Simulated scan of single mutants.
Amino acid sequence: MARVTDLSDEDLDVLRLLSRGHTTDAIARELGVSERTLRRRGRLICDRLGVKTPIEAVVWAVRSRLI
């Protein structure tokens, strides 16, 4: 089980934007990173949380009251 400290502020920003329905392109622009970097961060977030998809990561963050 992941701990809240496993996620950085940037990770939480990604999850917040995903939860609001933003596209990968829009999130990358908002955060000033490439789409490739954003996809890599998404995989790392999923690995840290022990989930398979970014949507599962968002659900985890919502249920944990992080976003």
Score class of each variant (00 low, 15 high):
Met1Lys: 11
Met1Ser: 15
Arg3Lys: 15
Arg3Ala: 12
Arg3Tyr: 05
Thr5Gly: 02
Asp6Trp: 10
Asp6Gly: 07
Asp6Met: 03
Leu7Arg: 08
Leu7Val: 13
Ser8Pro: 03
Ser8Asp: 11
Glu10Asn: 10
Asp11Gly: 06
Asp11Leu: 05
Asp11Glu: 11
Asp13Ala: 06
Asp13Lys: 10
Val14Cys: 00
Val14Asp: 03
Val14His: 01
Val14Ala: 01
Val14Thr: 10
Val14Asn: 00
Leu15Ser: 02
Leu15Tyr: 02
Leu15Lys: 01
Arg16Leu: 05
Leu17Tyr: 09
Leu18Cys: 02
Leu18Asn: 03
Leu18Ile: 06
Leu18His: 06
Leu18Met: 09
Ser19His: 06
Arg20Phe: 12
Arg20Lys: 14
Arg20Asn: 08
Gly21Arg: 06
Gly21Gln: 09
His22Thr: 02
Thr23Cys: 14
Asp25Ile: 04
Asp25Leu: 08
Asp25Trp: 06
Asp25Lys: 10
Asp25Tyr: 13
Ala26Phe: 00
Ile27Cys: 14
Ile27Leu: 12
Ala28Val: 04
Ala28His: 13
Arg29Ser: 10
Arg29Phe: 02
Glu30Leu: 00
Glu30Gln: 05
Glu30Val: 02
Glu30Pro: 00
Leu31Asp: 07
Gly32Val: 14
Gly32His: 11
Val33Ala: 10
Val33Pro: 00
Val33His: 08
Ser34Phe: 02
Arg36Leu: 12
Arg36Ala: 15
Arg36Val: 08
Thr37Pro: 07
Thr37Ser: 10
Thr37Asp: 08
Thr37Ile: 13
Leu38Ser: 04
Arg39Pro: 01
Arg41Ser: 14
Arg41Tyr: 04
Arg41Asn: 11
Gly42Met: 15
Gly42Ser: 11
Arg43Gly: 00
Arg43Lys: 06
Arg43Gln: 07
Arg43Ala: 14
Leu44Ala: 10
Leu44Met: 07
Leu44Val: 03
Leu44Gly: 02
Ile45Phe: 09
Ile45Arg: 05
Cys46Lys: 15
Cys46His: 11
Asp47Gly: 02
Asp47Phe: 10
Arg48Leu: 03
Arg48Asp: 12
Gly50Ser: 02
Val51Pro: 00
Thr53Met: 04
Thr53Val: 04
Thr53Ser: 13
Pro54Glu: 05
Pro54Met: 11
Pro54Tyr: 02
Ile55Gly: 06
Glu56Ser: 13
Glu56His: 04
Ala57Glu: 12
Ala57Pro: 14
Val58His: 07
Val58Lys: 05
Val58Ser: 04
Val58Glu: 10
Val59His: 06
Val59Pro: 02
Val59Ile: 14
Val59Ala: 12
Val59Asn: 10
Trp60Asp: 05
Trp60Glu: 09
Trp60Arg: 09
Trp60His: 01
Ala61Val: 13
Ala61Glu: 01
Ala61His: 08
Val62Phe: 04
Val62Ala: 08
Val62Lys: 09
Arg63Phe: 15
Ser64Ala: 14
Ser64Lys: 15
Ser64Met: 09
Arg65Pro: 00
Arg65Asp: 07
Arg65Met: 03
Arg65Phe: 08
Arg65Cys: 00
Leu66Arg: 07
Ile67Cys: 05
Ile67Leu: 15
